[in-house]
Amino acid sequence: MTASAGTPVDTSASTPGPAAASAPAPRPAAGRRRSPYRAALSTPRGAAGLALTCLVVLAGVLAPLLTGHDPTGQSGQGLLAPGAPGHPLGTDDLGRDLLSRVLYGIRADLGVIAVAVPLGAALGCLCALLAAVHPAADTAVQRAFDLVLAFPGLILALAVTAVLGPGRLPVILVVALAEIPVFGRQLRAGILVQRGREYVTAARVGGTSPARLLTRHVLPNAADPLVVQFAVSLTVAVFLEGAMSFLGVGVRPPEPTLGNVLGQAMPYLDRSPHLAAGPLTAVTLLVLGLSLLADALNRETRR
């Protein structure tokens, strides 16, 4: 990891015309710069994050191939210890294979966050664009964001399930709802910053239409933080889904999710702590991987 500060560029920061010094050390390709995203993924931090995330995602996606057991199929052998024949992670209280429940749980989790986060991001960005159009729209959107942000995630979750009842849809809805203001604010701030930049004024004087101004000059330069935010939001979504299922307001049993597998392990924690180990490990690895990714992206895009 190279320190981000301290390139020779910084040495001339206090001179008035940083002409020569800010031409950065010549890169192999003097033209297009290397994509910061690819650069981020090739750092040790980014690579580790990518590997962890891929590991968990693959485990979820390939669940039917990795285990022969039906995650909801009960058997007479309840609470088998890990390493029992045919059940590498043992079984739960109802005799269901724990490995397949964890793997299918990951699958269910991914299904929720892969829909909810992009949905939230898209709606949030849409709101931000709306806010960028007119000051009145801006105020309306901002206050709506405040309203959503005023509810802590779980209270929001409980409120939504109180109306819709538990299930997959409410979870998606809650995660998306929680992410809308986050993305909306992020993008709105980016748009405001970029709109004040001189090259945007230059483009305006150059006759560029407002729509083109937004799509060609403002948005591409405001997008970097959103990519980072996306990775952060995925981790938040994992937590939120887990918490909802854990509390029993999420995806309905018997379908496994990481949250409800963990929830069902709670009563047996003193006798069979291994019940909780599987889902906890999966959540930890997934969140760790995504956080490392977000961090790596953040470091590279801010350069």
């Binding site: 297009r32 001189e198 090259y199 230059a202 483009a203 000059h217 591409p220």
Partner: peptide, 16 residues
Amino acid sequence: QMVFQDPYASLNPRLT
């Protein structure tokens, strides 16, 4: 048309 003061800030960094 206009020429700006800061040749760093007045060019979009993403365009050639």
